[in-house]
Design a binder for these strands. Structure first.
Lengths: 245, 245
DNA sequence: TTATATTGTGTAAAAAATACACATTTTTGT
DNA sequence: ACAAAAATGTGTATTTTTTACACAATATAA
């Protein structure tokens, strides 16, 4: 940012004391809120906690926390994930900030929204947080604060990203069948896909590793299990063009 | 956001006094910074001002300002645009926030980055701001604060968006030739495009209005001038799918 | 053994993207 | 007046991508 506008003085007068300048600015509390997506039983899920504010009693909210004094935004978001899920190296993306003056009953609080994709099997919820639960994305209605808006914006971002990058794998177990993969895409995008074309598409991208293993305990012909070839994907980061309004 | 983590107490104890809660949070100053893109002489431009901080003497910075006490982020960003360019109803999009603890020499300042597209002919720079100038995007090197990073991120966002929505028209005069349009896309995306295919593409999208007028004062055969059919575009907001890593 | 459920597979048609060249129109310079 | 320069305007063939669509094979459950 730059100088506050009204006292524009033309040219030349440089501000010596930046600390004094910033001290005079209005201040806001700063938080991060994480939309943590998971996938289970062919449904897209979100991890929510009950609001601890009387004002939102009974309502669900996103997992978030205050950003500490000398902490960057990403650090804070990773910390929230780590503290809540025990998971460390996770996909995480900043989405956007929300700062409507009335969005928090306690005063001005600016929040930076993130979303994250985790494998619901790989984490253990913190014991004490017995109000932390996975929710079906579809079934979520009212939430505390403006968290429903944040959730919707993050879901839209996910829908978009998952078509540009193979992020979906973060939600799946290490080994997965193509049907699971397709169910995942259908759940995220909320559409039906053609099975043969879906397979063709993913095979042609050529970063599925055939494990030569098969599903077990399914009440029908078991499908082959694949792994995602992260290395190959990272080597071939696709160039990108095509006007497409 | 939700409760601060360390003193997790299990369940049940709702916070009555949200104001007291927020009062105890660390605070940050909050600003918006606008990357204002323009297009002139076939070059993508950005509007910059000289830093008014001694610490960044001589360096260029984005146009920004503090977010006022009861102002939302978008309001603040529109205000910056209005105050700097005199323009009111302009395309503007929030990109992301930057809050590294050391990013401002005066203490913690969180900034929310926006980008905006304006027609360089439609505005008059504020008289007093005689250090506000258009810069060739290509030629920008060091900047004050972390503004070069912000600029780069916003440019990437623009490159992406301009292929999903016909935003480019915001940078052009009301009437424009197809060559100007192509030059614009080539400047934004920093690539060469095939002239015939480019024309085909845009004609097939069918929101160019033929004005039956032609360029004047060009040292060669003049091209036809077109207008952009905003209404038609808004009616046909395209649905969207195609996995495309 | 049969019914059920799901996997695995290929081709044809349609749509979209790409590569590519020449005649036309205007201005500028002689 | 003419020639040179510069850019416009236009169409087709090829390749690539997307879409639509059906049946045999394999495993489990009854």
């Amino acid at each position: 940012m730059n100088r506050s506008l009204p006292p524009l003085t033309g040219r030349g007068e440089l501000i010596q004391d930046a600390v004094q300048l910033v001290a005079a600015y209005p201040k806001t509390a700063l938080t991060v809120d994480c939309v943590i997506f998971g996938f289970e039983e062919n449904e897209l899920k979100v991890l929510l906690i009950r609001s601890d504010l009387q004002a939102y009693k009974g309502l669900w909210t996103l997992l978030g926390d205050v950003v500490n004094e000398s902490e960057d935004l990403n650090e804070a978001a990773y910390r929230v994930l780590r503290e809540r899920t025990g998971l460390n190296d996770i996909f995480l993306e900043q989405v956007q900030s929300f700062s409507a003056p009335g969005r928090h009953p306690g005063g001005r609080v600016t929040t930076v929204a993130y979303y994250s994709l985790i494998n619901v099997r790989h984490h253990k919820l913190r014991k004490l947080d017995n109000e932390v639960h996975w929710h079906n994305l579809e079934s979520i209605e009212a939430m505390g604060f403006d968290h429903k808006d944040i959730l919707d914006v993050c879901h839209q971002r996910l829908q978009r990203r998952v078509q540009e990058h193979p992020l979906g794998f973060n939600l799946l177990p290490d080994k997965f069948s193509l049907r699971e993969l397709q169910n995942l895409y259908e759940a995220i995008l909320d559409i039906k896909l053609d099975r043969r074309n879906f397979r063709k598409k993913f095979f042609s991208m050529d970063f599925l590793i055939d494990t030569e293993e098969y599903e077990v305990d399914v009440p029908h012909r078991p499908g082959k299990l694949y792994k995602f070839n992260f290395q190959k994907y990272q080597r071939n980061q696709k160039k990108w063009f095509g006007i497409d309004f």
